[in-house]
């Protein structure tokens, strides 16, 4: 039913179409932008075609042009799609997993454990996230992985709260009571009875956060925390594009390609998720059932 509604809504349709395009890009990256022989073992390293410190405009060999330091923009965009999905899925997935584990234990066991875990959640929620992310990456080194670790560390709490609330409701249902009374193991009860009936909203929330994760990572890249220049990551490419906006005298758009392609990629990717998410929320919002 939900799928049908999503497909009928023009907003989510738009989102789905864009997203489909990115999935195709990601899956077929090795064919769309083949890795040159020299870089075979490091496909995420954007090939360099020279060393010059100023960008080179698009040409037939390099349809999107070359960045400062002559990295191929087309290659970076295509392979950056994989990076975007990887970052989004890993961060959303793992933090969702942590949230679900903490939240369900908290709700199922209840009492002191619940109280304790919820206070831990409170503490994490009072943590200045950006500072924490910067500290983690400054200490353990500037890299995409460390940015992801920092993000996961500070985004599981919402899932924990959400699943806890849901489980607390389901917990009172008769079949759960019955299972408990008949001595089914706690682990089994959570896994068989509680989670399947409460996890759906959490999963939706997690998948909807994929776009914003990519956006946050790009922001951290801008602050100098993400991947190194030359790594196929949109945020990195965009963050290095920031100083090429003025153009040359008489030609304010001289370096447009350095900015436009990675910006378009990131905005479209995030937009797709947000459009779907927006439509989704409409569908799930009980108040808008006109």
């Amino acid at each position: 039913m939900v799928t049908k509604k999503l497909l009928r809504n023009p907003i989510s349709m738009l989102g789905l179409i864009i997203l489909l395009g990115f999935v195709i890009l990601a899956v077929f990256a090795p064919w769309i932008a083949p890795t040159p022989e020299r870089y075979k073992d490091e496909p995420y390293r954007i090939p360099r075609y020279g060393y010059r410190a100023t960008p080179t405009p698009p040409s037939s060999e390099h349809p999107f042009g070359l960045t400062q330091g002559q990295h191929d923009i087309f290659y970076g965009i295509v392979w950056g799609t994989r990076t975007a999905f990887r970052v989004g899925i890993l961060v959303a997935g793992i933090s969702c997993l942590i949230g679900v584990v903490v939240g369900s234990i908290s709700a199922y066991v209840g009492g002191r454990v619940d109280e304790f875990l919820m206070r831990v959640v409170d503490i994490f929620m009072s943590f200045p996230f950006i500072i924490a992310a910067i500290v983690v990456t400054s200490v353990f080194g500037k890299s995409l992985t460390n940015v992801m670790v920092a993000l996961i560390f500070f985004s599981w709490m919402n899932y924990a709260r959400l699943i806890r609330g849901n489980i607390l409701q389901v917990k009172q249902e008769e079949y759960v009571m019955a299972a408990r009374a008949s001595g089914v193991s706690h682990f089994k009860i959570i896994l068989r009875h509680l989670l399947p009936n409460s996890i759906f909203p959490v999963l939706i929330q997690a998948s909807m956060s994929l776009g914003s994760v990519v956006l946050t990572v790009a922001g951290l890249s801008f602050l100098g925390l993400g991947a190194e220049p030359g790594y196929a990551d949109w945020g990195q490419m965009l963050s290095f594009a920031r100083n090429w906006l003025m153009g040359t005298p008489g030609n304010p758009l001289a370096y447009w390609y350095v900015v436009a392609y990675p910006a378009a990629a990131i905005v479209l990717f995030v937009l797709a998720w947000n459009l779907i998410g927006d439509a989704f929320r409409d569908i799930l919002d009980p108040r808008i059932q006109a």
Binding site: A53, Q68, T248, P249
Partner: peptide, 8 residues
């Protein structure tokens, strides 16, 4: 590297 943008 940014001088091209302001030279001239």
């Amino acid at each position: 590297q940014y001088l091209d943008q302001i030279r001239n």
